[in-house]
Design a protein around this nucleic acid. Structure first.
Lengths: 336, 336
DNA sequence: TAATAAAGTGAAAACGTTTTAATAATCCAA
DNA sequence: TTGGATTATTAAAACGTTTTCACTTTATTA
């Protein structure tokens, strides 16, 4: 690969001048500029990013920690991040929390990234002191389980979303509603999981009994599809009576529907089911999944934009933006 | 951030010695080693990867070009890649072809990557001269549309897979089988798309008429779910008679099933449908999708391992490994 | 005991950029 | 015509490592 030195020699100028042409700063005469550009073309010169990074102490790259991309919820957010990132000349790396944890934390500290986006909540929090990592590298969070409000984060009003969904089920006449999802306890700094809180509050507000028999807590983060399926199977084995399931993501809901249909229980005729996230697949399965739509791509955009602001030296704290969600009424809920 | 210089000063040794301790090469006495390690711990020193990369001319990172992660087929392959990559101390960046093309090609040439994995076929080929990029950076391909056999690639016998699937449908008594998928023409260097070829050959072998009325070619790569849905709707509008659909990926198949069910056509009672890829969702929808299972994670492993070999100077050519596939008989196909 | 090998350490060059400071050439006003 | 600004260019330092070479000290062998 040609280096800047080679270009300089071919154009008969100093390396400094080549830099000036490339970065468009300082004075450079028409004639010289032309000669340099000619040489660059001839040698097919592309500036070396590693060297530039070392000198400028910026490497034009961010890291993104996810729960893995098998849940397209993250894939869609990442797509939003990618759009804004590349627009601004940044590349990004993805880490899945399924991978050995210590390793990637160390990689992040090696100075190969200018910023960090964390799309995973509890696990990451258990793993490193989120506040500490932020001192080392600008970071922006999306907490799927509620948030530690002092850290810069993009949020969705998850409690309200789940409250709306539960109310919708209640309005349809359901009283025995299964909560299928992430554990009751949130991450440190959040007493309760906001989705769970929304579910409980909605029931209480309408005077419906809240029973722990109706809680289905999933602990597997990487394969919620299977987890939802299996939890509901267990539930059916136990013989708990219920008429609806409110799931905390679409994959769990789909797994749940599968478990029901394998036992000959029809959705929505016998049991109603709601999802959460509104993945593209949600409206393509039959019956189409009633679910909560989150602005995934916009979340990605805002995460990356907020990170850019921080990388430019701005200090951001707490909730940068809180999105609302929308209940998508489709075919998996029925009045009783 | 502490630098190696700081560590050296604190430990009272030269920076060279610190390097020796860190990289475990050369002689270093017990006593000095202890002092250096102590200093590293005290300063929380982490070696700077950018500087190391500049010196060693290896940056421990690879790039991966995909069609976007919305199709979890790619996500699962990427997961396989990630496992082997991190095991070997490599990080990776993902690029989606939905993003401006020229930009990422340039980024790849900037020396920020030691290797490249291409998971996207035709588009990438139209974009850059695959043979040329390989001269600049070690590259390994997975061609989803057949392959340019001279380039290092990991393959699946796609023709045979589609042949098997079509035969299965034929054996079930279907004669009017819709081909739903990628266009007939493959990438440059491949006359025909292997899946399509498998479909045609299977029909011909059993003396069943091959009709272009039965070809549903999808040109949208990033949202095949919707594309499958819409193509089948168009088909139904045209009033073409058929009893089965053989789709080229699971998402198309799911979109197709949705289109059918919206018109009151039952799967599999009225129409049989097969997918391709065996995504996790395939066995979780109802009816569970009959599809072709590909070893996605293993493909990822092999891709990354082959890339590692190339990065170690080995010259690889053509098909490094060709995987077989397995037909998963589930619930979307029925005898007639 | 002298000669040789091995163990231990450091100085300095190199990787390919950017940037600061210095220098040279040109232009313009007094 | 001279002094000061403006334009144009370069030399050299710096970024944080790795690695080569040279040097000193200690151990081993004949």
């Amino acid at each position: 690969m040609a280096t800047r030195q080679d270009v300089a020699k071919l154009a008969g100028v100093s390396p400094t001048t080549v830099s000036r042409v490339l970065n468009n700063n300082g004075y450079v005469s028409q004639d010289v500029r032309k000669r340099v550009e000619e040489a660059i073309r001839e040698l097919q010169f592309v500036p070396n990013r590693v060297a530039r990074s070392l000198r400028t102490q910026k490497c034009g790259q961010i890291a993104c920690i996810t729960h893995g991309l098998k849940n397209t919820f993250y894939a869609e957010i990442v797509q939003g991040i990618e759009e804004v990132a590349l627009e601004n000349g940044y590349t990004y790396s993805i880490y899945s929390t399924s991978v050995e944890n210590e390793q990637y934390i160390n990689l992040i500290l090696e100075g190969f990234y200018d910023g960090l986006i964390v799309l995973t909540s509890s696990e990451f929090n258990n793993l490193v002191d989120a506040k500490k990592i932020r001192e080392v590298i600008p970071t922006c969070f999306y907490w799927d389980l509620g948030y530690e409000t002092s850290l810069p984060n993009v949020a969705v009003n998850l409690k309200k979303a789940m409250e709306n969904t539960t109310n919708y089920l209640l309005d349809c006449g359901h009283k025995e509603i299964i909560y299928l999802g992430y554990p009751k306890e949130g991450i440190e700094g959040v007493k309760e999981n906001p989705r769970f809180l929304g579910y409980v509050d909605a029931l209480k507000a309408k005077g419906v009994e809240v029973s722990s028999d109706h809680f289905l807590f999933v602990s597997n983060w990487n394969d919620t599809l299977t987890a939802g399926y299996e939890k509901v199977k267990e539930l059916l084995d136990k013989g708990v009576s219920f008429t609806a399931i409110a799931a905390c993501n679409d994959l769990m809901a789909i797994g749940a529907i599968r478990a029901l249909s394998e036992r000959g229980i029809r959705v929505p005729e016998d049991v109603s089911v709601t999802g959460f996230d509104d993945l593209e697949i949600a409206r393509m399965i039959t019956p189409a999944l009633t679910t909560v739509s989150l602005p995934k791509k916009e979340i990605g955009h805002t995460l990356m934009k907020s990170l850019l602001r921080q990388m430019n030296g701005e200090k951001l704290e707490g909730i940068i933006k809180e999105y609302e969600s929308e209940l998508m009424e489709r075919e998996t809920v029925q009045k009783i």
